[in-house]
């Protein structure tokens, strides 16, 4: 359904996209994520860079999966032709292990967080343009 240009399709795509994001945390494999994410998404780049930095130092990450609690979209194209949704998400506990397997840092499971996602229907598939907190907040 994530390949449909409809509100339901966008919601399915958003859930799928968050799964790819979570997959990146666990594996540091960002190819599937980047394939459907615009490089202009600064939150994505920031978080990805932190995860990559940790893996590059020889460590790994357990957890960090982001789940989608609910979405809310008008499904109307904005001035640049993309679609805004408000998304309610929760991120699981993140455990950071160093190269010798010692847990060096952790962050707890978050409370539900309100974010905005901006997606663009590109010919035959969705692309995530931006993801983060609502402007003005």
């Amino acid at each position: 359904m994530a390949d449909e240009n409809s509100p339901e399709g966008l919601e399915a795509f958003t859930a799928y996209w968050l799964e790819l994001f979570s997959y990146g945390y666990e594996t540091n494999d960002w190819a599937p994520f980047e394939a459907v994410t615009d490089p202009g998404c600064r939150t994505c780049e920031n978080l990805k860079a932190e995860v990559q930095k940790h893996y590059e130092s020889g460590g790994w990450i357990d957890g960090g999966g982001i789940s989608l609690n609910s979405t809310n979209t008008e499904f109307v194209e904005n001035t640049t032709g993309s679609i805004n949704s408000f998304i309610d998400i929760t991120q699981n506990e993140i455990l950071y292990f160093d190269s010798s397997g010692i847990e060096v840092k952790g962050s707890k499971k978050t409370e539900p967080v309100l974010g905005v996602s901006i997606a663009y229907w590109e010919v035959d598939h969705w692309v995530m343009l931006d993801f983060g907190s609502p402007e003005g907040s």
């Binding site: 945390y25 615009d38 490089p39 202009g40 998404c41 600064r42 939150t43 920031n46 978080l47 860079a49 932190e50 995860v51 930095k53 940790h54 990450i61 960090g64 982001i66 904005n78 001035t79 640049t80 993309s82 805004n84 998400i89 991120q91 993140i94 950071y96 060096v104 840092k105 962050s107 978050t110 967080v113 974010g115 905005v116 996602s117 901006i118 663009y120 590109e122 692309v127 343009l129 931006d130 993801f131 983060g132 907190s133 609502p134 402007e135 003005g136 907040s137």
Partner: peptide, 25 residues
């Protein structure tokens, strides 16, 4: 140490932008 939590510093405002041209996009 770095932090990759969504509520940490990496979480920034999402704005209305245009699609950046990549791979013929």
């Amino acid at each position: 140490g770095p932090s990759a939590g969504i509520t940490e510093s990496g979480w920034v405002n999402a704005g209305n932008t245009v699609r950046q041209a990549v791979g013929g996009g």
